[in-house]
Amino acid sequence: MAVRNLDAAPTVIELDQVNKWYGQFHVLTDIDLQVKQSEKIVICGPSGSGKSTLIRCINRLEEHQAGTIAVSVDGRRIELTSDVKNVEAIRKEVGMVFQSFNLFPHLTILDNLTLAPIWVKKMPKKEAEDIAMGLLRRVRIPEQAQKYPGQLSGGQQQRVAIARALCMRPQIMLFDEPTSALDPEMVKEVLDVMIELAGEGMTMLVVTHEMGFARSVADRVIFMDRGEIVEQGPPTEFFANPRNERTRTFLSQILHH
């Protein structure tokens, strides 16, 4: 991976001492995280470690109970509070891709893509459709525009989901285990799209177990366990000599099976 100078880039996401509980269960403990513009972060960890919850807090699908989360949009720092205007502003700039795609089954692929640009960004329909078709070409399925999600394969659906998120022209993309629900032969087509996206300088937070992707794309790999960030570092370092015992155990389980 080409070494980029991220230190000079502005910080776009700031998490400071973020805590969250489900009832009595402490899912996130004192999370501190700073993400620079166009940084690619891969978050891994055993199931139930809080990695999905972490990125879902960033666009407030989940509400954190202590600490601050702030997202910079066009140089303006917006803190996530209960203020609905702030939540709206952040969601406009942060795209998300889900494990289970969550495409809207009653809308065509094209309508899935243009829904938010039209109604949230107030974009004229024609313009939204042009952008959508451009994105569908980029994810290599323009011919499917008039079909419904149920008619597509899993890999195609996930690529549509990525295109749908991109259609809002987000500055940051969150990926919540985007390949976990896919058959093995479809994983690559989705990863290829994500790699391409990374090459264009998108800021990305990716929860995934695809260590190959982490090695080739990530600027930083974060390992989470029991709601804490246990270890983080550049992929070369992270995979070559993990410092923490828990990281080593996890990596040996995931790499040698």
Binding site: E88, V94, F98, F101, N102, F104, L115, W119, A165
Partner: peptide, 21 residues
């Protein structure tokens, strides 16, 4: 499925838009 609500939220649709569309 819950994912439908979440996807709509993540796109920034408000309550009325989410419900109607």
């Amino acid at each position: 499925p819950k994912g439908q609500f979440e996807a709509a939220d993540a796109m920034g649709l408000n309550y009325v838009q989410k419900t109607v569309f």
